[in-house]
Write a protein that binds this DNA or RNA. Structure first.
Length: 188
DNA sequence: TATGAGATCAACT
DNA sequence: GTTGATCTCATAC
């Protein structure tokens, strides 16, 4: 198989370029995962972004090198996975919101309880639970195990919309998805 | 289909 | 003390 691995160079650009190109890519953790069908872009000048108020202990990895994971706790219960992008010394990241499960379905059902494939990874918190992503993955490079991140083949139909679950800058059309996918967290 | 409450933690004011 | 890049379950229409 050709090496379609996404490396740091791929992420060393504006998140607004990277995010749409992530749709259709394959994300695996320890062989469990699937195709990325939904992401949201957050940049440093974005009031909704964790990077907006500058670097803190929690958001440190968002300010770290491109091509790494930024994992944080949301609402005290859920984990959310971001892929760090950065042109140069900036804090930008793409929030992975939904996957189409393709590998390790059994492991996912084990972690989340018996469930239909379409609801295993249809949301940032669900996806992290299904793949077993926690704080220990915060800051890890995405081009090394246990992560595997493979570029898409071809250009899938893209859907664009407004981001979900935020109160500030809620009108920005920085949510990207695979058009008509049944695995989205919400329809566009 | 839609709306609302509860769960629960760390950063921030 | 408040808030949030969420999810699930319950209740209502």
């Amino acid at each position: 198989m050709a090496d379609r691995r996404l490396t740091r160079d791929f992420f060393a650009r504006s998140v607004h370029e990277v995010a749409p190109e992530l749709i259709g890519a394959t994300l695996l953790l320890e062989g469990v995962g699937g195709r990325v069908v939904e992401v949201e872009a957050y940049d440093e000048d974005d009031p909704a972004s964790h990077g907006f108020r500058g670097r803190t202990a929690r958001t440190a990895s968002m300010f770290g090198p491109a091509g790494c994971a930024y994992v944080y706790r949301s609402y005290g219960i859920h984990w959310c996975l971001n892929l760090v992008c950065a042109p140069e010394g900036r804090a930008e990241a793409a929030l992975v919101r939904a996957l189409e499960p393709t590998q390790g379905l059994d492991r996912m059902r084990e972690r989340r309880g018996l469930e239909a494939a379409r609801s295993l990874c249809s949301g940032p918190g669900k996806l992290c639970q299904a793949l077993g992503i926690t704080r220990i993955h915060d800051g890890l490079p995405l081009d090394e195990l246990p992560f595997e991140l493979l570029a898409r083949e071809g250009e899938p139909p893209l859907a664009v919309g407004t981001r979900i679950g935020i109160t500030r800058a809620a009108e920005q059309p920085w949510r990207y998805g695979l058009a008509c996918s049944p695995f989205l967290s919400r329809r566009f």
